[in-house]
Amino acid sequence: MPGELRNRLVTTLVETGAMVRFLFRILAGVPRALLRFDLVVAQVYNAGALSLVIIMLSGLFVGMVLGLQGFQLLQRFGSEEALGIAAAIGLVKELGPVVTALLFAGRAGTALASELGLMRATDQLSAMEMMAVDPVQRVVVPRFLGGIIAMPLLAAIFSMIGIYGAQLVGVQFMGVDSGSFWSQMRSGVDLVDVTEGIVKSGAFGIACSLIAVYEGYHAEPTAEGVGRATTRTVVTSAVTTLFLDYLITAMFLK
């Protein structure tokens, strides 16, 4: 039914507009929020340090799988030595930023959304408004900043551990020459590739953090409302991340 599709499109457009306006409101509060640096540090801890375990484990396993699959594929062409460059490019440019973003949305994003949603449901945000404290500045902005600081760092850690995972499989298990592994990587990976990865994780960080705090802050003040907000955070973050991934990849493919 085109009518329903049109409604869906309109709703998405309206929501996107509301989210962008919320972003401006957040950005306006950043300078003041930085004065309360202790709040930002606490949120970097929540978003980043607490996600370390899942990111490092996932990075290790993804890297190891890359090592296995890459080795099998390259073996057909007799180019096992290129495993280093294959793993590095795959991780740094794509898997690192994207998988980290998806995991972040699942762990930190849902935590942010449910935290804010609960504060909304228990009137804590209204209470702050009543005490003449802007809840966006006090509660939302530090969480947003925490997310965008944590994301690129997490993606870098993911890629680094992934490369070592690939090396573990390729060199230690499969017998690829260690020297070739690293030297081919070094000659094949350029600073542009690393930059592309950093730009991606930065963009994903902004998107996922914004979506999480928006959904949580505007959640309906009921139990179902909070649950819905967390679900929507994950779904919207995932779709937006993959969409941005395509955009940025195309941008760098001049």
Partner: peptide
């Protein structure tokens, strides 16, 4: 905890830019 995390993150960035590229 935050300090360690940020340190680790920058170490990873440093690793990626220096150890994987020919720079």
């Amino acid at each position: 905890g935050t300090g360690l995390f940020v340190l680790l993150g920058f170490a990873a960035l440093f690793f990626l830019t220096t150890q994987t590229t020919s720079r």
